[in-house]
Design a protein around this nucleic acid. Structure first.
Lengths: 412, 412
DNA sequence: CTAAATTTCTCGACTGTCGAGAAAAAAATC
DNA sequence: GATTTTTTTCTCGACAGTCGAGAAATTTAG
């Protein structure tokens, strides 16, 4: 059944609205808040004083008056309101970042992962160590860390922070909530890496296109293949999801994939798959876990010089991607596609296959070719996606937790 | 940007809540409304008197008192508050139904469609005629018809009532809003047929499972192949969508489809495709538009008696469905699948292929086989879906239109 | 006829948003 | 330097909504 509505919920929603405006546009004055949120000036007053009393936002130091009239006072998040730790797990390293409530980076370090010692157990202890280290270094009390946002490639449970399958750990699941529950009071969230790319690019798109933005797919090319989809739901909220695209069936009974299945898209378009095709290795050879990029660069170079076999290897990869994307577009609406990841350096070699694969399907014949766009700097997008998602969630949690209202009436 | 919230919106939402409870559970007393909506008794009082004054609901005639204490008075929708016309377009006929605000069927007739005269022009004039006829027969003023809900197989624009592609009219689009704008003030909505099946089955599922209901896919088998997906969004709202499943690419460069593309799922699993396989007709033969079901029954009978070729025809169809479904599950979460349509009579012959196709994919190996369920009576589900969707929308529109609040303060 | 049970209605308290105008504070003008 | 103008922020009263508690209504049981 649907949930009832009440005046308190109204206040909550509008408080979040104010905090969201602050997130999107940086420090804002009373008047600007009123403009962005469409709330009346009076309401903005009440909400900001409440948020200020609850130590969530603060008035910035007086800035140089820019024009005549009473000078504006800018509100911004209190940086010490809470902290976020971002953990980005990639195939060869894990990056830890400590971020304050205003979104500013405080500390960051990267731990190399040894390829050989890859048990989940040792990874988890490494994770806990690193988390302890990052709070210790910054001398923060643990309970000021309100959220830990983790990302990895692979298949992620949508409602809980459980990694179901990953190229790194395979079927060994990791339940991050369970792992961190004892030591941390922070909320733990987990997202597929390309989901976060989609979140970041989607936000950028909306900033550019405004209400015209309908949706977008982010495709990440590399050792593995990732897809994230973001759509603008009603009320303007962005709905993000990370389909299991890399392991969607490309071809029945096809080449062997790292995941153990046959015929996955990744088994045709992942780096190891391109290598396999270039060297004419049988399709049921158990693939190498990770392929040095230099190796692929060589194949690409020779393809660009006309090597038939290598051209074909990339073309086949593009075809798998294009056909897969056409299937995605059949199941969702048509939408632009942003391509990221290390594989974008071979975009020139992949494009023909991608286009051809897309062109084959009914949707594309109906709606026309979707817009394809290359966005090279994937790591930045991933981090940006983490911040977008986690900080918005923190705003929400803080308001909902009631710290704002419970101080009312008390003398501050 | 997100939309602000206000006290008036609160009232609107809670009014809709009351109307929804009435839809789901039939006539209800004050106390029951309070229970279902979790609104306080006082609030229910205010809302019901408002809705009553606006002539949207009414108190039912006194019913026999069931226990001791003050007898309950039941509220129900006023039947004459508004009317809905449901138009179900199928390959050989168009069914028109007139329904009152309480969901009761008032009038219904069916127009045969001649296969030969199948231009969009003549279809549209036929549609207008029939709509005029159905209001004339019931002696209703036209402007009391608040909504016209149309369904067809094929590809439907999600935001506007535009039929983009259909097995009947091909690429000749129909913009129903434009066609009916001049003669009707009613809101016109269009939905893919299987979308409506999904809406109906989804509602049934939620009644059964309650909050455990997460989502569901409805698969319709017949001349063409349809898929509808329903998922429970946050706040318990059902989000329905109709992917272009029948024309998703099954096999690159495969058999010719009615849509003109090659290798669509329908070109392997539609009735004409099964026929084609059974008679070993070349895969690029332009398929017959519609195949008599008796013809397929014969093929099925001989398959059940052991005919290799016919068994293979159904198996191949099942395989296309199973693989296609596995791809759907890769892109959404795993969810149960309800199978409807005339093709369910061959379920025994299809099942093996479906299972095998599903089993091949990574998701199914991870999450296990999805629940498959046969629901034979498709026409009833389609109509039920129409009512669910259209009447809920009418409730919403009526409350939002402001007829409820604008009477306030006036003496009634 | 009275008491008990049950449902519906009403009242005052509380919490929200809003518009209008007062108060504050700096720049421009005389 | 005093006054006016301009811009921003704050405050007050009006109005809309929900809620809990208890009053009013209305039937059955005894």
């Amino acid at each position: 059944m649907l949930a009832k509505s009440s005046t308190e919920l109204v206040r909550q929603k509008n408080s979040v609205l104010v905090l969201t405006a602050l997130r999107r546009h940086g420090p804002l004055a009373h008047t600007e808040l009123s403009d962005f949120t469409k709330l009346s000036s009076a309401t903005v007053s009440v909400i900001t004083t409440d948020l200020e009393r609850a130590q969530i936002i603060e008035k910035a130091e007086q800035q140089a008056a820019s024009g005549r009239g009473r000078p504006r006072v800018l509100f911004s998040q209190r940086r010490d309101c809470g902290y976020l730790i971002v953990v980005i797990i990639s195939s060869d390293a894990v990056q830890y970042s400590l971020v304050d409530y205003a979104g500013r980076l405080i500390d960051r370090f990267t731990e190399e992962r040894q390829q050989n010692v890859s048990g989940v157990g040792s990874f988890v202890t490494g994770l806990c160590d690193a988390l302890n280290r990052i709070v210790a270094r910054s001398r923060l009390p643990r309970d000021k860390v309100l959220m830990i946002s983790i990302s990895s490639k692979g298949l992620v449970e949508s409602s809980e922070p459980v990694l179901r399958w990953s190229p790194i750990f395979g079927r060994e699941q990791i339940d991050f909530a369970a792992v961190l529950r004892d030591e941390w009071s922070a909320k733990v969230i987990l997202g597929n890496e390309t989901l976060l790319v989609a979140a970041a690019v989607g936000r950028q798109e909306e900033n550019k296109k405004g209400r015209d933005f309908r949706g977008l797919a982010a495709l990440s090319l590399g050792h593995s293949i990732g897809l994230g989809i973001v759509r603008r739901g009603e009320e303007g909220k962005h709905e993000i999801s990370a389909p299991n695209f890399g392991h969607m069936l490309h071809m029945s009974g096809g080449g062997l994939c790292r995941c153990g299945s046959r015929g996955c898209i990744e088994a045709y378009a992942g780096f190891y798959a391109i290598l396999r095709a270039a060297f004419d290795v049988p399709l049921d050879t158990i693939p190498a876990k990770f392929v040095p990029v230099a190796e692929l660069d060589k194949i690409a170079a020779s393809a660009r010089q006309g090597s038939r076999r290598n051209i074909f290897a990339f073309r086949q990869a593009g075809l798998a991607l294009g056909i897969g994307l056409s299937r995605v577009l059949s199941l969702h609406e048509s939408m632009p596609i942003a391509i990221t990841g290390p594989g974008t350096r071979y975009y020139d070699l992949l494009l023909e296959g991608i286009s051809e694969g897309l062109a084959e399907s009914h949707v594309v014949r109906m709606e026309g070719m979707p817009e394809l766009r290359v966005m090279a700097d994937e790591p930045t997008l991933v981090f940006e996606g983490h911040l977008n998602r986690a900080l918005a969630m923190m705003d929400d949690d803080i308001v909902r937790s009631g710290v704002v209202t419970e101080l009312n009436g008390q003398t501050g």
